[in-house]
């Protein structure tokens, strides 16, 4: 469904992504791994259109993503989380999630101001869908809390929930478990595993926690210095010499 073809991205003289090609298949969890500074988040920022690559093509279901502004990426069905959580911190948790559903409402300012039927219907739907995702993530109890006052672990969950509630076809997760406790990490791994079936979407997971990545994904793409150095099933990656040298060797 998502295809990167020969993508290169430079900042000044620094090459963040180098002639990178890979594909994310439908309905699966694909992991993108690599050491710190390998260019993982840059790739994610290319897909969500925060960065425009100098070379290459990015297509999603045959559509050229590079023709779209960042605010229209969610409309084609791609939602993302943020590595350092970028919540709407003055808003409640449930409002953060409602914003994840808002792109689907056609109600404009006028409809919203006068609570015309479609605005009322959207508010109802948004609330219900937000509650479903809150329940999935087991955070209903903090629904009305101001998100900026939450612990980091809870903020990570809200960040994930906000992307999930948009009903994406492809969910981009940028280190969803980074900086959280071991207990939450393990719990998150089982939750992420459930996402494709329960929400009918593919997942692109970035993380450098090998245990998390190899445990939940069906396909792994390994990058280093912006280039792909390996690709395969988790079992193949475990045995790949170049991966072990570039990545596992240092980590373990």
């Amino acid at each position: 469904m998502l295809e990167l073809d020969g993508v290169s991205l430079s900042f000044g003289g620094v090459r963040a992504v180098n002639n990178l090609s890979f594909e994310i298949p439908d309905g699966q969890i694909t992991a993108l791994i690599g050491p710190n500074g390998a260019g993982k988040t840059s790739i994610l920022n290319v897909i969500s259109r925060f960065y425009t690559p100098q070379h290459g093509r990015v297509t999603f279901d045959g559509k050229d993503l590079l023709q779209l502004p960042p605010s229209e990426i969610i409309d084609v069905g791609i939602a993302r989380s943020f590595q350092n959580v970028a919540l709407f911190k003055e808003l409640s948790v449930v409002d953060n999630l409602k914003i994840g559903t808002d792109h689907r409402s056609s109600a404009g300012l006028f409809s919203n101001m006068f609570r015309l039927p479609r605005a009322v219907k959207h508010e109802r739907d948004a609330r219900r869908e937000a509650e479903e995702v809150l329940e999935f993530l087991d955070i209903e109890a903090i629904a009305e809390r101001r998100s900026g006052t939450l612990s980091y672990g809870h903020q990570k969950l809200v960040d994930l929930g906000r992307a999930l509630v948009s009903r994406p076809k492809l969910l981009l997760l940028d280190e969803p478990a980074a900086g959280t406790s071991e207990g939450l990490k393990a719990w998150l791994a089982t939750k992420i595993k459930e996402i494709p079936e329960r929400f009918g979407c593919a997942v692109l997971l970035i993380d450098h926690d090998m245990l998390l990545v190899l445990g939940v994904s069906q396909k792994v793409v390994v990058v280093d210095f912006g280039s792909k150095i390996a690709q395969g099933t988790p079992d193949e990656i475990r045995q790949d010499r170049r991966v072990i040298a570039a990545y596992l060797g240092e980590e373990s």
Binding site: S48, F50, P70, S71, E72, I73, I74, D75, A79, R80, F82, A86, L87, F88, K89, E90, L91, D95, K98, I99, G100, D102, H103, R162, A163, S166
Partner: peptide
């Protein structure tokens, strides 16, 4: 919500459409 979202994080607002 859109107005307050833009205030709190422009990047996340863009990503949310």
């Amino acid at each position: 919500r859109a107005i307050m979202a833009v205030r709190d994080s422009e990047a996340a607002a863009l990503a949310m459409g």
